[in-house]
Amino acid sequence: MANNKFLSSIAATALLGVTLSGQVLAHGDVTPQAVDTQGLLPLGEEWVDENPYRKPNKDYELAVKVGSSAYNQNCARCHGLEAISGGIAPDLRELSSDFDGDEWYQYRVRNGAVRDGAVYMPKMADYLSQEALWAIRTYIESRREEM
């Protein structure tokens, strides 16, 4: 009888462990995912000051497409699906579509966000190219137009 209780206890603990690990993994892979920027104007190593793909740039539509995929792979888990924040992280659609908004965006993607030693957002520029990050910004701006 004692052996059955012991085995039941082990089975319950294993089931709890599987359940919890499934919940943790359900959040998704938090490692930034690579972005294919083929077709976008190459920007080089030096960061540009303003979004180079903003309308009326000829690459605007492609940048929105690339940015949508990149955003949903790398940003949506915190900033919300379709760039609509659920309140956990800032709603990026509220950034102005001008130099000031670009400056803030560039600062944050290059430096990340750390408070009291906790990393709230990694330095995305360590993982994604300037082209990918500006494409994400272009996608966010396209979503802003729909607000």
Rank of each mutant, 00 (worst) to 15 (best):
A125R: 09
D116P: 10
V24S: 02
G117C: 02
I140W: 08
G67P: 07
S9Y: 01
G112V: 08
D29T: 05
L95M: 08
V66K: 05
L81A: 08
E45H: 12
L40F: 13
R93V: 04
S21P: 07
E45L: 12
R143F: 05
K5Y: 12
A12L: 02
S9L: 12
M1N: 14
A89S: 15
R54Q: 11
R144N: 10
Y53I: 11
G86N: 01
N57W: 09
N111F: 13
L16D: 05
G17R: 12
G67I: 03
C78V: 01
A14N: 07
Q73H: 09
Q23P: 02
S142M: 03
V109P: 01
P42I: 05
G17V: 15
P42L: 07
E61A: 14
Y53C: 08
T138F: 03
D98I: 00
E50Y: 10
G17C: 02
N74R: 03
W47I: 07
R143N: 07
N74Q: 10
R115A: 15
Y53D: 06
A132T: 02
D126M: 08
L81W: 08
L43R: 08
Q106C: 02
Q73C: 05
L20H: 05
L81V: 13
G117P: 00
K58V: 13
Q33Y: 01
R143D: 01
R143E: 15
L16H: 05
G28S: 04
